[in-house]
């Protein structure tokens, strides 16, 4: 069975999904990722799904739960590089990944993570300005 590699960059774990996910692979990824977060004490997780072109409801839910699990382990999670077709499919399936941060690419994802880890109040600031 294929395993998705999990790379550590400083405080951040980078998961880059380069193949079309099978159900078993996705389950294994969730296991691996949660143990790795605990092991390394990572503060942020970046899941790059830019190569993922096909999702079904199971994989969609797995992305959502994987992100939720990481958050429970106190690691900010950002899903990056989602393809438009995948986004449309997820919305049609009713999976809007509520509470999961998203970014256009790994670069912006890292920036988002470092600002979120750097100062916890950044969200509030965004809202404050938005309501002006």
């Amino acid at each position: 069975m294929d395993r998705i590699p999990i790379l550590r960059i400083g405080d951040v774990l980078l998961v880059s999904i380069q193949i079309d996910l099978q159900d078993q692979t996705a389950l294994a990824l969730q296991d691996d990722l949660s143990s790795k977060i605990v092991e390394t004490g990572a503060k942020g997780v970046l899941i790059d799904i830019s190569a993922l072109e096909i999702v079904d409801s199971f994989i969609g839910r797995m992305i959502s739960t994987t992100a939720a699990v990481s958050r429970v382990l106190d690691a900010e999670t950002v899903v990056v590089g989602m393809q438009p077709a995948v986004a449309i499919t997820l919305v049609e399936l009713g999976l809007t990944l509520d509470g999961v941060r998203t970014a256009l690419d790994v670069d912006r994802g890292l920036a988002l993570l470092s600002s979120a880890l750097g100062k916890a109040g950044s969200d509030v600031e965004v809202d404050d300005l938005a309501h002006e």
């Binding site: 899903v79 990056v80 989602m82 438009p84 995948v86 986004a87 449309i88 997820l90 919305v91 049609e92 809007t96 990944l97 941060r101 998203t102 970014a103 256009l104 912006r108 994802g109």
Partner: peptide, 12 residues
């Protein structure tokens, strides 16, 4: 709403 949600998933 769907369009906005899909854009959010992309990070926009």
């Amino acid at each position: 709403l769907k369009t906005v949600q899909a854009a959010r998933l992309l990070g926009a």
